[in-house]
Amino acid sequence: MVASPICSKTSFHARSNSLPSRPHPIISEFDEHICRVRDSQATSSSSSSIGHKLCSLQDLYDSVDKFLQLPLTQRCLAREHNHKCVDGLLDGSLRLLDVCNFTKDALMQSKEYIRELQSVIRRRQEGLDSEIRKYTASRKVVKKAIKKAMKSLKGIENTCTFSNEDPEIVAMIGMLREVKSISLTVFESLLSFISEPKSQAKKSGWSLVSKLIHHQKIACEEEETNVNEFAVADAALESLISCKTDEMKNVQKKLNSLDLCIEDLEDGIEGLFRRMIKTRASFLNNFN
């Protein structure tokens, strides 16, 4: 794999008394995954691109876990003068887990509301407008919570200090800070996707849906990469109230697409959460 020119190589190396200093294979693997996640940041904020970012981040955490189990890493973490710094890293990992948990909850709550609405539409019960308004209100609650959470993301800083006399811990901190920064960027991208469809959400009702359908016919591949399923469903439901349009099948299709989108994102977040837990456990095992 050819690394992106913007990807800087880490300076944490496995050393030998008889051989020249060279990167450990796990460090090289770490660098490759860093580059891959960074490269994915340039892609569009569609559900498929975010899913790809989550998969790349999972691979990165697998490399971090291997790195934490290297004897050199364990010796570095065990040095008494590095304990304060390690405590800071552990605190940072816990806060990242909190963010991941919040993201899981936001997706789960959104899916529950969507499925309730799907059930009402399938049974064609009375009071559909009321259910749609309930869904819209629930979306506002989720958006408000996400907005608050995203503000807190900016406050997650690694405050640990370390001595310049220990180059290994300096390099290690640089690596793990980079992982933290990339993780926060991916979480922010996903939360923005859920809560802020941006310009798509501001377009009126069926004009958006019709435009999307039109582009799917004449410029399918390029347009689909930029589709936000939350924005499409929101616009379709809004039009159903304001215009009383008899387009139930189309609305059901949009809700179903959104449901499948959320399931895929949930799988990605769950896989990432498990790897983050494993990485934290590897950290803690170094002190048992």
Rank of each mutant, 00 (worst) to 15 (best):
R38Q: 13
T185A: 07
Y113C: 04
H83M: 05
P20A: 13
I277C: 13
R274I: 10
K104W: 09
R123L: 11
Q41A: 03
I121T: 04
A42S: 10
S49C: 07
S28E: 15
K66Y: 13
C243N: 12
H13S: 09
R122L: 13
C55M: 08
F67P: 00
T185E: 08
L117W: 01
I156V: 13
R38L: 04
N226G: 11
S28L: 15
S183D: 00
I169V: 15
C261W: 02
I50K: 04
K144I: 02
A231N: 03
S28I: 13
Q41Y: 03
E168A: 14
K147C: 05
I132E: 05
K254W: 15
I213K: 14
G271P: 03
S110R: 09
L89N: 03
H214L: 15
V64W: 01
D129N: 15
R15H: 11
D98I: 05
K66Q: 15
G127W: 06
W206E: 12
D105R: 11
S28M: 11
T161D: 10
I277W: 06
T10S: 15
L128K: 01
I213W: 02
H81P: 08
H52Y: 09
T159A: 08
L89I: 11
P167K: 06
V142R: 15
K143L: 00
S45K: 03
Y61N: 04
T279D: 06
D264M: 08
Q118H: 00
L70A: 08
G92I: 09
F273S: 13
E266F: 03
A145T: 08
C261H: 01
H24W: 09
D87F: 07
S199E: 12
T43C: 03
S204W: 04
I121V: 14
I50E: 07
V37I: 14
S130G: 04
T161L: 14
K180A: 10
G271L: 02
S210L: 09
A78D: 05
E126H: 10
L153K: 00
T185C: 02
C76F: 01
L19N: 09
K202A: 06
